[in-house]
Nucleic acid binder design. Structure first.
Length: 246
DNA sequence: AAATCAGGCAACCGCCGCATT
DNA sequence: GAATGCGGCGGTTGCCTGATT
């Protein structure tokens, strides 16, 4: 999880911070503030460089720093702002009280950016329509209009693969038979898939920033919800949302 | 049970912009 | 205007841990 402690050529300690170091840094800053990061470690009795102290304070010790998983709301904000301003982690962090730029960067790199994978296959059938998709006759799909909650997502690049799609959990298979949708052409070298559920009033709620439609589709969080797949088109297309009609 | 793999994340590195001299 | 120092930022590394083989 953390680097092992070591010392650089100047005798400055590097790597993981000990509890004792944390206590020294916290106590010093709380009583004296941080007027000069370069000199601070000397006066605080720490064998660390100023940058290391600053990073430790900002990302871990500073009062109010949030730890743990991002809420759904926070995830949506990160996705939205990243679409707008790109890798401006500090600017994004400014909109999320308690979150640090490092935290957001890690979140994005490990749980969002990774989901953008290259397309694995394409079909010869061409389509320029956002609503072009064939459906299995036995499994009627309902198409619903996107709502405001989807606007942020729509600004990202999306595509999808509709090879064999089926619920992954046995408990769902009984209730919702596997459905096959014919493979569609892809519009984009990247795709993204969000699992979601709809409440009774058809409001949209995201479950997770899901993986590819091949390996993570149809994750549900509530037994009351229908298995659903949201399929998004790239920038030039309107998103389409499908509900399995059970 | 051991080895390997992959995900998560703390921490480091180098660069940049701004303020001061 | 140039040089210097500092803080801040984004990219990247590398260790730890849990999952998988």
């Amino acid at each position: 999880m953390v680097r092992s402690p070591c010392f650089d050529s100047n005798g400055m300690k590097k790597g993981a911070w000990s509890e004792d170091e944390d206590n020294k840094l916290r106590a010093f800053i709380l009583s004296h503030g941080h007027w000069n990061w370069r000199l601070l470690p000397k006066y605080a009795g720490l064998k660390r460089c100023g940058k290391s102290c600053r990073l430790r304070w900002v990302n871990h010790l500073k009062p109010g720093v949030k730890r743990g998983h991002f809420s759904r709301e926070e995830e949506n904000i990160v996705v939205k702002l990243h679409d707008q301003i790109g890798n401006k982690w500090s600017a994004i962090a400014a909109e999320l009280p308690g979150r640090t730029d490092n935290d957001i960067k890690n979140f994005w790199n490990t749980r969002v950016a990774r989901q953008k994978k290259p397309i694995l296959s394409t079909s010869s059938s061409s389509s320029s329509s956002s609503s072009s998709s064939s459906m299995d006759d036995d499994n009627q799909l309902l198409e619903i209009a996107p709502n405001d909650a989807m606007k942020n997502i729509h600004e990202s690049t999306f595509s999808f693969d509709t090879t064999t799609i089926q619920p992954q959990l046995d408990s769902w298979s009984d209730k919702f038979p596997p459905t096959v949708v014919e493979e569609e052409e892809f519009w984009s070298p990247q795709f993204y898939h969000y699992d979601w559920v709809a409440d009774e009033d058809h409001s949209i709620m995201f479950n997770d920033v899901g993986g590819s439609i091949w390996d993570e589709s149809f994750e549900l969080t509530s037994s009351d919800c229908q298995p659903q797949s949201r399929v998004c088109a790239p920038l030039d297309y309107d998103p389409i949302f499908w509900l399995w009609d059970s």
